[in-house]
């Protein structure tokens, strides 16, 4: 994934979710993005290295002071994601945005084209 693609995915996702979080910066080598969250929190999305398998991404929360520490009581929290879809889902959930809908596959025999 390129920095441009990551930028597009994250920036547009935040818009889709109507989140107050903002994308501040995206950089390469290592590929990562920094988001500003409400409450003086920051979140870094970092691509996992080749020796960090099976994980694909890491989410790293940080707060500028202890009063704004994220849930869990620690000033810094890490969360691994095994896929890009998992990254988006974890990010959305961490921002408190409820899911829209999950895909459903029809139970019938498929579409008739007779």
């Amino acid at each position: 994934m390129t920095a441009e693609q990551l930028d597009c995915l994250l920036r547009t996702s935040l818009e889709l979710w109507q989140s107050e979080a903002t994308l501040q910066a995206v950089s390469e080598a290592p590929l990562q993005a920094r988001l500003a969250l409400p409450g003086n929190l920051h979140l870094t999305v970092r691509e996992a290295g080749p020796d960090e398998g099976p994980f694909r991404w890491w989410l790293v929360w940080s707060a500028s002071d202890a009063d704004h520490a994220p849930a869990g009581g620690q000033a810094i929290r890490h969360k691994p994601c095994a896929s890009t879809l998992g990254l988006l889902r974890s990010l959305r959930e961490s921002l408190g945005v409820s899911a829209v809908s999950r895909v459903r596959i029809g139970t019938g025999a498929g579409r008739s084209m007779q």
């Binding site: 889709l16 979710w17 879809l85 988006l88 889902r89 829209v100 809908s101 895909v103």
Partner: peptide, 15 residues
């Protein structure tokens, strides 16, 4: 394909 549809529906399925 299923991954794409899953992501599509999950994040902008209401649109």
């Amino acid at each position: 394909l299923p991954l794409f549809l899953e992501g599509l529906m999950e994040h902008c399925g209401d649109r």
